[in-house]
């Protein structure tokens, strides 16, 4: 009688804590800034559900649930491997969810472009004052990508 009560108490506490863990992990699935974050959180959800199944097996006495847990673990493993292959083949897109710094200066989208433009304009007036002012000032309003234009103007001047 007491042993059954001990097991029952442990199962109830375990179910509650697992439920809280499940919700915390679901929060990471929702929030996770990148795809691998969500995949690893889903992988852990499989583990938590396996724990749920084990506790239900203890509570109900149907030990056949162990086989279900094993097959769920197999499915979770295969799903994670498939997602890893998918991530490898897809490659991370630059600027995804704002977490990945752009490797190539051309890549940043609308958000990153405005701060980049004033920075590019500031060094140019200093250089243009040193060199040929008219040629540089005339081309700046026309073409926004100024960095590429500068070497061309320098070559034309020399």
């Amino acid at each position: 009688m007491t042993s059954a009560a001990i097991t029952q108490f442990a199962v109830n506490v375990g179910l509650f804590v697992l439920g809280v863990s499940f919700l915390l992990t679901v929060w990471r699935v929702i929030k996770g800034p990148t795809l691998p974050d969500r995949v690893i959180a889903l992988d852990m959800l499989v583990g938590i559900v396996m724990g749920f199944i084990a506790l239900i097996a203890i509570r109900t006495g149907f030990t056949l649930y162990i086989d279900i847990a094993i097959s769920l673990g197999l499915v979770g493993f295969l799903a994670t491997v498939a997602f890893a292959r998918f991530i490898l083949s897809r490659k991370a897109r630059a600027g995804e969810d704002g977490t990945r710094p752009p490797a190539v200066p051309v890549v940043p989208a609308g958000t990153a472009a405005p701060p980049a433009m004033p920075k590019a304009t500031k060094p140019k007036p200093a250089k243009s004052s040193d060199g040929k002012q008219k040629a540089a000032s005339a081309r700046q309003p026309e073409d926004k990508p100024k960095t590429k234009r500068k070497p061309a103007t320098g070559k034309g001047e020399t």
Binding site: T34, P36, V39, I40, D43, G47, G73, L74, F77, T80, V81, F83, A84, R85, I87, L88, R90, K91, A92, T99, R100, P101, A103
Partner: peptide, 19 residues
């Protein structure tokens, strides 16, 4: 199986350029 899947996922993420 957990270390295998975790290693695969970490390697794929690192090779894909996640910082």
């Amino acid at each position: 199986t957990a270390p295998v899947s975790a290693h695969l996922l970490a390697k794929a993420a690192h090779d894909s350029g996640y910082p």
